[in-house]
Structure formats: structure tokens, C-alpha cells
Write a protein that binds this DNA or RNA. Sequence first.
DNA 1: CAATCGTGGGG
DNA 2: TCCCCAAGATT
Length: 336
Amino acid sequence: MAVPAAPAAPCPPANPESGPAAAAGLHAALSDWFEETARDLPWRSSGCSAWGVLVSEVMLQQTPVVRVLPVWEEWLRRWPAPADLARESPGEAVRSWGRLGYPRRALRLHAAAVAVVERHAGAVPGNYAELIELPGVGSYTAAAVAAFAFGRRETVVDTNIRRVHARLVTGAALPAPALTAAEMRLAAQLLPEDDAGSVRWNAAVMELGALVCTARAPRCGDCPVRDACAWREAGEPPPTYTPKGQAWHGTDRQVRGAVLAVLRLAESPVPVELLERAPADLGLEPGPGPGPEGISVPLAALHRLDPGPEQLARAVSGLLADGLVEEHAGGLRLPA
DNA sequence: CAATCGTGGGG
DNA sequence: TCCCCAAGATT
């Protein structure tokens, strides 16, 4: 299907399959599908706090649901409210972030908790304008929290929604590499008028993208709106571009990750010498040595990477600059 | 605006 | 095995 023309637009061809009526059909179809198919995720439960929703949204940035679940449970058990996390050191947030990846998110979530305490008396704000002022909260997360935690009518656009719209409405296999203004307009046009309906629609389209209209092998046979799908109607044309993959092996990122893995487990500052090729005579391998115990495994992993001194220095200085690591007592540790 | 920033599971 | 990519944000 296509979309109702914007009033001022230079007169796109009128499409009988488009318009509010068609949109209403999609709303109903996806709403039904969502009700019977949606996953039972803890941050969707009615009892979940806005804080719980915020934490989930940040953790879910570029990280799959299954990996987030256990960490989210642990965070909410330990820190049921923003003030609880705000009392902790930033390093504790980074440590308990575990291996979710992109650990700066942990730092920002901690900073967001502090900001919520300072600026909002400890209560997560409910409107987009205030949410987006929080560290680590961008346009997607602000809209998602306002919608899912506060029932507001927001134009939520994440990678799932972008892909569903690209196929269902635009007829393309994949959305453009970067979010465009046209996509935002489209998403706004498709949004149901009422608050409750809009929230359900946002969640349903997202869920459809996650479970059915997936990037790799879409399960079109299970799709509740396949008969309205422009991509299917067009014969499922292939993507017009190939996404460029991110390099990993041998990169600074890999070294940063390995260094941070060591520091997460360390109970005392780790001398930089230990991060460099550790001679066995430093006493780390077999027994307890002069250094902190319990970090031998991630340390071995780091050594296996064998970053050059310059790369290690680059990685460490990056971590220092980001505030993920600090110097203390002649070594490195997570920020206290 | 393009580059940067982790991690692990599935195709 | 290798490659793709998952509820993005920031500079």
C-alpha cells in the first residue's frame, strides 16, 4: 500500500489502496496479531516502572532481547529506582553491565539516573522533551519510553519499524542506510490518532519486525499483513545496496573490549604492565601473583589478541577519555 | 554526515 | 568458518 499524500505535496498519484481506510485495516490486523503473538517480556508487564522501561530500552540498543533479559532482571532487582543506581559508582554500573556490549551505555544510564534524581526528583520524566535531555537517550529511546511507559502518542522509529515500513509501504527490501526525514513523515502518517492505539501500533510493528519481518529470512507466511505488502506485491526485489559490515578482528574496539573484560573482574587496580605481554614470571598463570587474582582468563584472552604497545595505549587512552576507566594507585580500574 | 563504539548467536 | 546483525547515541 501507499500512504495518504501530504496535503501540500506536489500531487502524488492518487492510490485507491491507500488512505485512512487502508491504514485502519493495518491497525486492526496488526493489533490482533500482536495480542495473540507478542512475547511476554518483563518490561511490557503492567507492573513495570518507567525506570524499568528506560533501562530496557537502553540495554536493547543494538543488543538482542535474549541477552538483555537476565541483566535487566539483575539491574532492577539491585536498583529498583533511579536513586538506587545514582548512589552507586559509575564503575559498578559498568561492571554489572557484563557483556552486553557498548559499555558506554552503562555509564550513560548511570548518568541518566543521576540526572533524574537531580532534575526530576528521582522520577523518570514522561515527555519526549525531558527524556531526550537524559544522557544516552536519543530520539528513539525518548519516544519509546514516552510511549511504552507513559502511554503517550509518539512516532517511534527503530530498525524494526524502519524495515517493516520499507517493505510493507515502500516496497523495498531494506530501509535506507540512515534514517531519513521521509521515513519519519511516513511513520507519523501511519500512527493511529488515539493514544492507546498508537502505543499498540508502535509495539506491534516493532514486534512484527523482530519476529516475522526479519532482516535475513522474513517469515512472510506468518505475516498478518502480507496481502498488503508492497514488497511482496513487487515480487520481493533484492536490496539495492549491500550494508557494509563492521570490521572487528584486530581493531581497537576488540582491544578495548578485552581490556574492559579484565577490569570488570579485577578487584584492585591492574598495572598496565599486566595488560601488555605478561611474562609468566609475573606469576599470573598458575598461582596468585602480585597482581589481582581472578583475572587470568580475560588477561589470557587479551594476550592472545597480542595488540601492539601502540594499539594497547590507544585503546586504554580511549577508555580513559570515555570515562570507562580511570587511573588509580599505579593501575587501571573502573571509575569509582 | 560518516565514523565510532561490543558482543555473541544464527544462517 | 565466516558473515550478518540486534529496540542507537554521540561526535
